[in-house]
């Protein structure tokens, strides 16, 4: 059965399904059951499953991550929620020294079925401490899996896959995607490690992460008007990374822009570019271009923030460079602006 739901509702739906199917699944974190329900994504869970399976916590991110780990080692399947990905930094000791290591250090005698959901903030003054994505940081750590669902279907399917996974998975959700509706087929299973081709094209491949997929699709729409066809691939799973379909797309088009929702220096875009150069060297007509955040902490004020983030426009300019094209006249185009859709503070 397919239903049209928002990304937010798809997340809730995934948790409902898994909590109903398995009494070991529980969801917890700061403010999880309060009246705002993590931007509505935990709506209805405490009413349906009770306070023992859906509860709030003290402000103790490190200990709560340890609690999640201890529960997972005992056979429960915790979903630990952070309303901002930046707050996972308070739990880095547990995530990077404990969660990711314990199976290896015991020679495979332990398993850690643990999901960490964390939301990436943006806009309306979210600033430097409410806007990180951190997928490059977590993807760097052996023993962790990292996904960034972009569509409602992936929010639903990847979260369900993550909950059923016997390993730790970080699910990084962009706040702006929460209101985006999409068809969700509840039978569709999406495994970890598979990118999704969102648009088929021939002239260049844009590999995007999270919100940048939306920007890449907009760029493709604009460039299509002048006959340029972009192939847009949503990486979707950072670790494990499904490199083969991405490399196949780049081998086909011969040109690639990696549009990452993160800083470029030492980041996921560098990893992807390096792998694509190694795999597609003969097919590439130009070096892989990389787009990402400006290498500064995220500024608060809107004019600087606009310069900080990559966008459909920066993707268009990058593709034009790769194809040696004159700049497209964008004066008639309408690009996504959160002012039209999104009012603060959250």
């Amino acid at each position: 059965m397919s239903r049209l739901v928002t990304y937010r509702r798809a997340l809730t739906w995934a948790m409902e399904e898994e909590m109903a199917a398995d009494p070991n699944v529980f969801v917890f974190g700061l403010d999880v059951p309060d009246h705002k329900r993590i931007f509505g994504s935990t709506q209805g869970l405490v009413e349906r499953f009770g306070a023992s399976r859906c509860f709030g916590t003290p402000l103790s991110e490190e200990a709560m991550t340890g609690v999640a780990l201890g529960a997972a080692l005992s056979g429960l399947r915790p979903i630990h929620v952070h309303i901002r990905a930046d707050f996972t930094l308070l739990a880095m000791n547990q995530i990077v020294n404990m969660v990711s290591n314990l199976r290896y250090m015991t020679g495979g005698r332990l398993q850690v079925p643990l999901v960490i959901r964390a939301i990436i903030g943006r806009g309306w003054g979210q600033s430097a401490q409410h806007s990180k994505s951190l997928h490059g940081v977590f993807g760097h750590i052996p023993g962790l899996k990292v996904v960034m669902p972009t569509t409602a279907q992936d929010a639903y399917s990847l979260l369900r896959t993550a909950i059923r996974e016997d390993n730790p998975v970080l699910v990084l959700e962009h706040r702006w995607l929460y209101d985006v509706p999409g068809e969700v087929d509840e039978r569709l299973q999406v495994p970890l490690g598979e990118p999704a081709v969102r648009r088929i094209g021939r002239d260049a491949t844009v590999v995007a992460t999270s919100w940048m997929t939306i920007e890449a699709l907009k760029a493709a729409e604009v460039l299509a008007k002048r006959g340029i066809e972009l192939e847009v691939v949503d990486a979707r799973s950072i670790a494990p990374l499904g490199i083969e379909p991405i490399a196949a797309s780049v081998a086909k088009t011969g040109r690639c822009v990696v549009a990452d929702y993160d800083w470029t220096f030492c980041g996921f875009s560098a990893e992807l570019a390096a792998q694509l150069h190694a795999r597609c060297f003969g097919a590439l007509k130009a070096p892989v271009e990389r787009l990402g955040f400006a290498h500064v902490p995220c500024p608060t004020t809107r004019p600087l923030e606009n310069l900080f983030y990559p966008s459909a426009v920066s993707i268009i300019r990058s593709v034009e460079r790769l194809l040696d094209l004159e700049p497209t006249d964008l004066s008639g185009e309408s690009f996504y602006s959160y002012e039209q859709r999104f009012k603060g503070p959250f």
């Binding site: 200990a63 020294n97 404990m98």
Partner: peptide, 18 residues
């Protein structure tokens, strides 16, 4: 890493309670 197993033990105790 000093103290790192303390919350994990609390999590194991939480599982018993759950």
């Amino acid at each position: 890493v000093v103290a790192s197993t303390i919350p994990v033990a609390v999590g194991a105790a939480f599982a018993e309670s759950y």
